[in-house]
């Protein structure tokens, strides 16, 4: 099966009509402490292949809404690969193949009728290295609303930019230099700018791929604080190398090892009382 990145919408199903997809009742994740929402994304038997090499083996995972889910595990364990399946970023790699089923709000995101462009407007992503576009701060945040046509007037766009920057906790620092280049900000500021850029299109899910690995501890603390605030509005999935970070920001944790999902559960449980031996070894630092 080969994915084409951008499929033109079928002539048969016009702009407004909802895609046909089997609606499966979404189980509410109940176990564990903390305010955990209903399931937002549900993955069943997801495998990913790069050419002949299999990177991910039959991962099944429920990701609740309004929650921070941390994906942890040693490098090369497939956590980033799994993250990228959730907004179909793997489509951009030509020899990459995904099997299994990933549902968002009960809808198969790999279905033919789902447009990756639309999906990515609903599932935002923040990368390891801050990657602001070589444009002004304002233009960076306005990028999403502009391409998706979300603002009908300049005023509306200004509001979106302001709100997004405020939510990303960057407004105070940049309000007086919105039109200076985004690449001129510090690393931590750049990462918050990229988060503001992601939330400017009002996504439902934000995927974060080791968002703090390139930052210093102070900047990291700010981002973690921000993630905690954003949890109220969004479903957040974060890949992290740092177990301390997973423990600090997430309510639920999934541990990956060698391309398989080993264990998942409330963060507290995983860190205090893991069921699997391998999880225990990893969090106690015996490997990784």
């Amino acid at each position: 099966m080969k994915f084409k990145l951008f499929r033109a919408p079928d002539g048969s199903q016009g702009g407004g009509s909802a895609p046909e997809a089997p609606v499966i009742s979404t189980p509410v994740v109940t176990h564990g402490a903390g305010p955990v929402g209903p399931t937002k994304i549900s993955a069943r038997d997801v495998s990913v292949f790069y050419g002949d090499k299999q990177a991910l083996y039959d991962v099944s995972l429920e990701i609740p809404d309004k929650t921070v889910t941390a994906l942890i595990g040693p490098s090369g364990c497939g956590k980033s690969t799994f993250l990228r399946t959730m907004n179909r970023m793997n489509d951009t790699i030509s020899h990459c193949r995904v099997t299994g089923r990933i549902e968002m709000d009960g809808e198969d995101i790999n279905a033919k009728s789902v447009d990756p462009v639309l999906l990515r407007a609903r599932v935002g992503m923040v990368f390891q290295k801050p990657n602001p576009f070589p444009k002004t701060i304002y233009e960076n945040v306005a990028y999403g609303p502009r391409i998706h046509g979300l603002a009908s007037s300049k005023g509306e766009l200004d509001d979106i930019v302001q709100i997004s920057l405020k939510r990303a906790g960057l407004w105070e620092e940049v309000s007086d230099r919105l039109h200076s280049p985004g690449t001129g900000l510090s690393g931590g500021q750049q990462q918050r700018l990229v988060i503001a850029r992601a939330i400017a299109v009002e996504p439902e899910v934000i995927l974060m791929d080791e968002p703090c690995s390139a930052l210093d501890p102070i900047a990291t603390a700010k981002i973690e604080e921000l993630i905690d605030e954003l949890r109220e509005r969004y479903c957040i999935v974060i890949v992290t190398h740092s177990m301390a970070q997973a423990a600090r920001v997430s309510q639920r944790t999934a541990f990956f090892h060698l391309g398989r999902l080993v264990e998942t559960g409330p963060t507290e449980e995983i860190f205090t009382n893991p069921r699997e031996r391998r999880t225990l070894d990893y969090i106690t630092g015996r490997f990784g």
């Binding site: 462009v117 639309l118 391409i147």
Partner: peptide, 13 residues
């Protein structure tokens, strides 16, 4: 919001 997103899609494609 999704409707709005979808509305522009045809032109974008």
């Amino acid at each position: 919001r999704i409707d709005r997103l979808r509305a522009g899609l045809k032109k974008r494609y």
